[in-house]
Amino acid sequence: MSFDVETLTSDTVIVHVGEALDFRNADEFKETFQDYVEDDIQNFILDFSETEVLDSTGLGSIFSLYREISPQDGQVAFADVSRPVQVVVQLTRTYKVFRQYPSVEAAKEALAS
């Protein structure tokens, strides 16, 4: 399974995470964002609307993304966060780092302004 990525502007993309981001596809997620980071994409909107599984390896791959883009003031935004994702974000206190938005649209607007 590969990740569905939508280019929004020259520095922002939307990644539709899909049903699961876990130890099975975390490496693939890393390869995917790596290509965009090399193309100077700074902002990543992660669409979690369909996500039922986010395990610690999956979350770790999102952390890797954050570590790569934060020195350039890039952002990782969480959009339309499903309940299972919410639980993980709460537990690890990562809502302190990743801004959350009720929808992809809301995240788009916030990042555009």
């Binding site: 952390f63 954050y66 570590r67 934060s70 690890t92 206190r93 990562t94 302190k96 780092v97």
Partner: peptide, 9 residues
């Protein structure tokens, strides 16, 4: 009480 996970920021 808890704080951010290690290794992130």
């Amino acid at each position: 009480h808890s704080d951010l996970i290690l290794g992130l920021e």
